[in-house]
Design a protein around this nucleic acid. Sequence first.
RNA 1: GGCGACAUAGCCAAGUGGUAAGGCCGAGGACUGCAAAUCCUUUAUCCCCAGUUCGACUCUGGGUGUCGCCUCCA
Length: 475
Amino acid sequence: MTREIKVYNTMSRQKEVFSPLEPGKVGIYVCGVTPYNDPHIGNARPFVTWDVIRRFFAKCGYAVRYIQNFTDVDDKIIRTANERGVTWKDVADQYIDAYFRVMDELNVRRADVYPRVSETIPEIIEMVQGLVDKGFAYELEGDVYYSVESFATYGKLSGRNLDDMMAGARVEVDERKKNPMDFALWKSAKPGEPYWESPWGKGRPGWHIECSTMSLKYLGKTFDFHGGGSDLIFPHHENEIAQSQAYCGGTDCFARYWVHNGFITIHGDKMSKSENNFFTVAEILEKYPGEVVRFFILQTHYRSPLDFSDERLKDAQAGLARLAKAKENLDALSAKNGDADTAAVLAESAEKAREAFFDAMADDFNTALAISHLFAVAKDVNVYYNEVVNHGQAFDAKNFARVRAAFDDMAEIVGILEKSAAKSDEDAEIDALVEERLAARKAKNWARADEIRDSLKARGIVLEDSATGTRWKRA
RNA sequence: GGCGACAUAGCCAAGUGGUAAGGCCGAGGACUGCAAAUCCUUUAUCCCCAGUUCGACUCUGGGUGUCGCCUCCA
């Protein structure tokens, strides 16, 4: 907890030293998804990123409170529901389930709370009413709009001012609004739309307001981090700031650090639902394990664009396989006994690597650099494994435990190599074949040994011989 | 048009005013019955021009290129 953590704050456009609102605690609000279709890989990036950030904070000793919303009342959800002849709730529930299924595969830990718009209506109405009362919002025939001109610092986060936005921009002109940039806090219900009773009649919340209300409800007037994709900077986060600070009555309240991740692109162009150039996480998971996808995302700094392709995923898979191999070796060695003093240097360099890993994470969550230190430990482990297992060097259990602790700390933050494989019937059969081959090799019956190896290979099983036995894995 | 980001080896990707992490792929070698895995060795002067500096990939200015936000969007 004493480690200095630096964070790039979108608000100041520079790295700042993180100083928690309350010592030892971190409050995080990340904009979640609008559940109207299956999450694509671009949607997944912020959640994987924040999953690592929160794991890091936890490892540094902070008590983390992580809130992530579902915007389950929305035009697109309603439209989808009407097209399918089901309720908006059916649609939202379906895609919230899909979201969780996919995030579980990516090994993303659950948030502390997943508030939904539909469950936060009273608080939203209260906030909208408060904004009307304070003169920041006005009603128009059942709609309530936020008056951007009433908020002096509007545009601060995204670095724009109202004049710039007006010039050249062809915003839909609604003559009733005081300013074309005014946005809806509350929308009156049209036929066929879900609605809630309010002081302005039947209606539902506009976009933006839910995040202001939910963060206030679950994290308080002021909290540490607010995150999401860069495309949310404007207008979403800009509007949240306007709402929250107007409501709370001070420009020092609301989020203290704004953290925005870059986009996932495809052939260099932003992946987006509206461009229809996206891959859903689910379809990628048909070809690659979740941790490969996760690793792929984390090998690039979160603020950089990340180009998606099958080739990159394959690269990530190959790299992760090396770490997995080291983990296997780590496990195999950890099961051994031995009191020789052969791993002291190794332990020291592993702990040094862990320190470097934490330093990298503390510098604006540089997962790409951090992971390189994990590779360094992996290499050392593999070397030591060869010495002990294949060259008969005496084992040093005490110091090796330190290596393991360092490696596990790092892997846990990255969130990889955590699954433990359960033995299936097929596994047992393969074990038996491997045993038979081992016997054949002892008898120098190379023909039979190779026959078994080839037949397994045809099934996608690769064998690895060593001085002390044979291991196998699925390719 | 307004605002902003980025440009590093075959591919991906960190990075610091003082002579460029890591991963993937490729090549050579060790090990192996042969393989596989592993290990060792090996692959860049950082888009272009000008400037600041003892010294810049890293700072400043200009140029070129790519991308993003300004409308729903992670």
